[in-house]
Simulated assay, not measured.
Amino acid sequence: MSNEYNRASTTTPAMDEETTVPVNAVFDMARQGDVESLEAWLDQDLSPNMATTQGESLLMIASYHGHKATAHALLARGADPDQRNDSGQSPIAGASFKGDRTMVELLLAHGASVEGAANDGKTALMMAAMFNQVDVLDTLLAHGADPAREDADGMTALSLAKAMGAVDAQRRLDQ
């Protein structure tokens, strides 16, 4: 069986065909916010850092979909708040893109890097700026995000906000 869920993290042993079906269900639990079912698997020693073939961790999936209780359960069981996917994107970048301030705060409270960058050099602050997520922008700035930092193309959060027409983010960063 070949699909995006067949890869586990480097700390999880390779899984056979019989194990793949429950693993697929585990990723669906993270996506749907089924914290009780996911906790049952985690309590049976399932790695909280398991990831898809694209490197999407359970925490990244839960964070992106706004499932705070699920993200908290994963973090409480040792999920890495800075685990990156194959593009170098982190859970905090996904939550910033979505404008989920409380998820960003949860990730920061559990040690997520405010300055971590994807392979293209974009930080969570840049994602928030590009997509006009001002509440997230303010939260990241309050936690020390550097508005002068540049991505791989030499763009700052402000220049990215301008390029994307994110007017509110531009105003906030121009202060």
Rank of each mutant, 00 (worst) to 15 (best):
N132M: 05
H65V: 03
M29C: 04
G154K: 08
E115A: 15
P22H: 13
E150F: 08
A25G: 03
Q175C: 09
G111L: 11
Y64Q: 09
A30E: 04
V167Q: 14
D120S: 13
L107E: 01
L140A: 13
N24V: 08
M29P: 00
Q32L: 05
P91S: 07
A109S: 13
N49C: 09
A169V: 10
E36L: 12
G66H: 03
P22K: 08
W41K: 14
M103D: 09
V134S: 07
V35I: 09
H67K: 02
A14C: 10
D34R: 02
A109H: 01
L158E: 01
L106Q: 08
G78D: 14
G66K: 03
L108Q: 02
D86E: 12
A79G: 14
G78K: 13
A76F: 13
L125A: 05
A40C: 07
L158Y: 09
A145N: 14
A62S: 05
D135A: 15
E150T: 08
A124G: 11
A79S: 14
E36V: 07
T12W: 15
A148L: 13
K162Q: 05
A145Q: 04
T19W: 14
H110V: 04
E17N: 10
D120H: 09
G66Q: 05
M15A: 14
Q170M: 14
L108F: 06
M155L: 10
L46Q: 05
E105L: 09
P22C: 12
S9C: 14
D135Y: 10
I61D: 00
G121N: 01
A161N: 03
L141P: 01
S113R: 11
A129D: 04
V26A: 06
P48L: 12
L58E: 09
V134K: 09
A79P: 04
L38M: 06
S113A: 09
H72G: 05
M15H: 11
Q83A: 15
R172E: 13
E36M: 01
A95V: 08
A8M: 07
E105T: 10
L173G: 03
D100L: 01
L74N: 07
D151L: 06
D82S: 09
E17L: 15
G33A: 04
D16P: 00
Q170H: 13
A14D: 15
L160H: 07
Q170P: 07
A117W: 00
E17K: 11
L141A: 12
E56D: 11
R84P: 01
M60N: 01
M15Y: 14
R171S: 08
G99R: 05
A71W: 04
D80S: 15
R77F: 11
N24W: 06
D146P: 11
G66N: 02
Q83S: 07
A145E: 08
A109D: 12
M127R: 02
Q32G: 00
V21I: 11
G111I: 05
A112E: 05
L107H: 05
R31H: 11
